[in-house]
Each structure stands twice: as C-alpha cells, then as structure tokens.
C-alpha cells in the first residue's frame, strides 16, 4: 500500500509557536486512522497540515498528487441560518468539479441524491438542514463529502455533542464506508473511548507528545499511562476496549507555587 500522506520530521504550529515537533508517520491507502487527543493538543493543526491549509514550520508533509479529500467539518461550524435544502448542501461537494461560474446540473443533483441514499437519508433531500437532528445533519455532511468521490474521507469531531445512539450510528456508518467502499478514513476526535472501537489505527496527540500505532498497540495501560501521565486501566467488555483513569490525589494545578 502506498502512502497517501507522509509526515517527515515535521514540526507543526503557527508562526513562532511550535505545537508538535519532529512528527514522522504515513497514512497508507485504505487506512482507518483515528487522530485522538484533547482540545488544544494539536489535532486541528495536524489536520490543517494534511488538508494543505497550513504548512509545517520545518520538515515536510507530503500529500500524494491528485489526492481528493472529502472533508466533513464539525457540525456546529455549518451555519443553519442559511435556508438551504439538504440536497443543495450535498451538491456543494461537487462544486469544484462543476467549475467556476457554472451551475449544478441534473446529473449533479442525481449524484447528490445517490450520496444521500448511501448514508440513509435520501428521504430528507428536500428538507432544510436546520430542521434535521444532529445525527441527520452529520449524515448530510458525510454525503456531501462522498459526492465529490474522495480518496480520503476526513471527519472532524463527527460525534461531538451527540447522544449514545446517534454516536453509535454515525461511527458504524463511517466504519461501513471504510469496509464496503474501501475508503481511507481519517477521523479526528477527542473521545478515545468512542473512536478506539471503530478505527484500525490511532494517532494519539497529547500536549507535547505524539504516538501512532495499531489500536492494540496504543490501547495498553502502559502506553496510555505514559502518554496521559496518570495511571489508567484498559478494560475489555464484550470485545470493546474502555479506558478508565484511576482515581488520583488532587494535584496543585500548573502555576500554583509552593515554597520550601
């Protein structure tokens, strides 16, 4: 399998601020990678380097020529004040193929409907986005990413703010798209427990630290305790891994000083 994206000793950040240093890894074709870490750790910085909207401060991030990303933004970043039908939003995924100054055709509309069928909400095509539930909105945005016939499906916090049922349905849908359509998937999330049971590999981004590997390599007590710097247990229930932090004594927060 050839690499679609290659990080080679890349230092990532903004301006003079380094967020992640000396990052080297590849995203091969057919990968199902979860980019996991808390808010502010550098997930978005890494994602923006992959998508090309940010350049590394040093080293290289190489994207295979001709690669098409199907980007699914955070649901809340899509403004529901616009009175747009679901099918109109899905057609946006083909705008770059339609060309500058041209209008979508019947074919584009048919492809948008097909993409909506693929994610199970074709019946909502003519509804307005703002009338949809969180899970339905997420499916619509996934359909928009798919209609552009991407090489890599990139999802940014796809389950943020969703309940258990909607979360499970969306993650199952993404796994199906990977398994049945052979899509390479990159899923960004802060929720390790959610992502770990769906993806094949995990890239763990913590403040100043980065570790990537297969799920069974990353989801060990030794690795996670070392990365999170607190003792954690990894339990397996019916084939599902769950990470539980052990109770620890309250520590003074950074910046609180004690004097000897």
């Amino acid at each position: 399998m050839s690499a679609l994206v290659t990080f080679d000793h890349a230092t990532l950040g903004y301006g003079a601020k380094k967020i992640l240093t000396d990052i080297s890894y590849e995203i091969p074709e057919g990968d199902f990678l979860g980019l996991v870490g808390p808010n502010g750790a550098g997930k978005t910085t890494m994602l923006r380097n992959i998508l090309g909207s940010l350049s590394p401060l040093s080293g290289t991030v190489t994207v295979r020529p001709g690669l098409r990303f199907g980007y699914v933004p955070q649901r809340e970043s899509v403004d529901s004040v616009y009175p747009l039908q679901v099918v109109e939003i899905v057609m946006m995924g083909r705008y770059d193929r339609i060309g500058l100054g041209r209008r979508p055709t019947k074919t584009d509309r048919a492809l948008a409907i097909a993409a909506l069928e693929h994610v199970g909400i074709a019946h909502l095509a003519e509804q307005q986005l703002r009338s949809l539930s969180g899970g339905q909105k997420q499916r619509a945005l996934i359909a928009r990413a798919l209609v552009g016939e991407p090489t890599v499906l990139v999802l940014d916090e796809p389950t943020e703010g969703m309940d258990l049922v909607a979360t499970t349905q969306i993650l199952s849908l993404v796994r199906e798209l990977h398994a049945q359509d052979g899509l390479t998937v990159l899923m960004v999330s802060h929720a390790l427990n959610e992502v770990a049971n769906y993806v094949e590999r995990i890239a763990l981004v913590l403040e100043g630290g980065f570790r990537i590997g297969r799920v069974d390599e990353i989801m060990t007590e030794a690795t996670l305790s070392s990365m999170y710097k607190i003792p954690v247990d990894v339990k397996v229930f019916d084939g599902h891994r769950v990470v539980v932090a052990r109770r620890v004594a309250a520590q003074p927060t950074t910046g609180a000083h004690t004097h000897a």
Binding site: S53, Y82, D96, G101
Partner: peptide, 22 residues
C-alpha cells in the same frame, strides 16, 4: 449572478471550501 455558487459556498462553509481548493 455569475459567481453566486462560489460566494454562497465560501460564505456558508469556508473550511470545506478551503479544503476543496477554493
């Protein structure tokens, strides 16, 4: 009139537009 589609897209969802090369 000509660039309605483009103005709409970058107004509605600039991040996705950016990833699509806009």
């Amino acid at each position: 009139l000509v660039f309605y589609k483009e103005f709409l897209f970058v107004s509605f969802d600039r991040e996705t537009a950016r990833t699509m090369g806009y």
